[in-house]
Design a binder for these strands. Sequence first.
DNA 1: ATGGCCTGATCTTCAGGA
Length: 259
Amino acid sequence: MRIATYNVNSITARLPRLLAWLESSGTDVLCVQETKCSAEQFPHAELRELGYEAAVNATGRWNGVALVSKVGLADVVLGLSEGPDYEGVQEPRAISATCGGVRLWSVYVPNGREVAHDHYGYKLDWFRALAAAVAEDAAGERPFAVLGDFNVAPTDEDVYDPSVFEGATHVSPAERTALEALRAVGLSDVFPRALKYDRPYTFWDYRMLAFPKNRGMRIDLVYGNAAFTGAVTDSYVDREERKGKGASDHAPVVVDLKL
DNA sequence: ATGGCCTGATCTTCAGGA
């Protein structure tokens, strides 16, 4: 079974490329982030034509997550129980379901904006709620994984130049501690192969020729429990999908499982 | 090759992304 996670930066803007990529990659289950659409605008019909069904947690122009599957989609849960709100709103940043015997979450962790910003505290609270929400499944025997845009680079090796990020979000000790606390409930990082260069990045800014210069970050992660990681046969970042016109600023992370 | 931001809405300007 081939599972992937992909921050599409608008599923509407990405749809032609996304549909082509789903077919060419042979992906069975896709965890989507930043749909940037309402539930009504989600392209169910186009995906169904390719044999996929989808579950969506989306409310409009910001955020939004989905699970797209051709191997079943059962027991869908929207959102994060006991999750914090931001400015009085429960943002659509999490969805979970069981696909082909694997329990999967697609998450879009809050950005944080700046270390002193309210959004940063919200980000840390959101991580705490996520760890609590997945603890029971992470400790279980069923293959289980949280996939998505975590908006944290786990180590300095996961950014192209740590000095550029001094004092910034995505690399702060508190954010990395929050990730560590998530691993502590029974999850580990499924580290992908790079298809080029030494390190596998998953995001490159649209600006300043960041992609051609490989000024990237690894912030899209796959955190699986023991039953999940034990079934992994391969994982890689499909940087080819970051190339060219109409690309997202993220690349898909692909994981192959033998269950 | 991969090329100096992109997206959607508050829509010709801006917030948000990271």
